[in-house]
């Protein structure tokens, strides 16, 4: 009753009252939201880092073009333990290649990022120069269709900007890009 009188009579009182109400509501809502949200958090499982699931990747080539960076943060990775060390490598050479040499017409990689080293007859070691790689996935396609699939695309941690919404994940046709927790920073093969 008293309150009512105040409200009617004095605008100043009314303002003060509204202010108190507003403050309580605001403070309460902050606490409530924070409380509810804290039940939804988890440091361990929460996804922070974008990674490609090599099993799902179809090497569509969008990783090269759709990253927010001018040169994609997606690079080709090589799992040596899976590699067959073949001389005729499906990732290194174009299909229908005639001579197994390093001539431009025989090589798959458009930037020359795959390095080949002789180990012993008939094995060759392959390594990726990640500075040159542009993530086009041509070699990965070759290796997956004719080879052990030891070459695969993955997002390089130090280059990735950890966007809230990965621009490649948005266009990935096979939903291969997912968030992984901090403590398993790389989704590696082999």
């Amino acid at each position: 009753m008293n309150n009512d009188n105040n409200l009617k009579n004095s605008p100043l009182q009314r303002r003060k009252f509204l202010k108190v109400v507003g403050m309580t509501v605001a403070g309460g809502s902050i606490l409530a939201v924070a409380g509810v949200l804290s039940t939804k958090t988890g440091t361990k499982e929460a996804g922070h880092l974008w990674q490609i699931d090599p099993a799902k990747c179809t090497q569509c080539g969008r990783c090269e073009t759709d990253c927010v960076l001018s040169v994609s943060a997606v690079k080709c990775f090589h799992a040596n333990k899976v590699c067959g060390y073949c001389d005729l490598c499906g990732g290194y050479y174009r299909s229908n290649v005639k001579d197994l040499n390093t001539a431009a017409e025989n090589l798959m990689c458009p930037t020359g990022a795959i390095q080949r080293k002789f180990v012993e007859d008939p094995y060759f070691e392959y390594a990726i120069d990640e500075d040159l790689c542009n993530g086009c996935g041509k070699c990965v396609k070759g290796c997956t269709s004719f080879g052990n699939g030891s070459l695969y695309l993955q997002i390089q941690r130090d280059l990735c900007k950890d966007c809230n919404e990965c621009a490649i994940a948005k266009v990935c046709p096979s939903d291969a890009i997912t968030l992984v927790p901090l403590d398993q920073a790389y989704n590696l093969k082999g």
Partner: peptide
């Protein structure tokens, strides 16, 4: 070869 991938302390 032992391959280390770049891993800043995020």
């Amino acid at each position: 070869p032992d391959i280390q991938h770049a891993l800043p302390n995020e």
